[in-house]
Amino acid sequence: MEQSRMKEVIHTFNHSELCRKLIPAELASGWPCLKKVRGKLYIVIPYFNRMPVKSGYALYPIYCSATIPWKMPEKMLDFTVYTIQENWKDVDYSKPVGFFKHKALEDIRTKDEYIALCNRLYRCYDEMVLAVLENKPFAGEEKMAGLFSKLMEPSLYPFYEKINKKFYSNFYKM
């Protein structure tokens, strides 16, 4: 199965010097959203903390995000730490907001199955990016919404929504 470009872009950034210097090592990257700035395409990658617990992982609110150019994933346009943002001041970072895995993933038994599902969503992202770059309609919107709604951690969704409501609410149908 072919490697997703979106996954690769995130991987490249996650291994860049910039990321190493700016983003605490214990944070995990979440589902990205797209953003167009002055005609150029960027992706916003949210980062959050997760702690292993008996039943899987405890999830903490989204901590920060990095906005990187799609075509140059080792560079950065913007870096936002939410803990110091005015409209995030009521978020409590001391407690987990939920746990992985969530209910929608009950039928996913193994890690391989989960990764395969994630890869399918990443490939939907690829199709979406290609459509945007070629200025064509995105035909896979429904398929992507299905996968996104299954994979999105419901406890983290409110934070994703705070970052980019237009994008995330378009695909999260719960």
């Binding site: 959203c33 953003k35 167009k36 945007v132 064509k136 919107e141």
Partner: peptide, 15 residues
């Protein structure tokens, strides 16, 4: 290939 000026920006529900 398409010059910028000739492009019509698509409207996307998610952008």
């Amino acid at each position: 290939l398409v010059p910028e000026a000739e492009k019509k920006e698509m409207e996307y529900s998610f952008l």
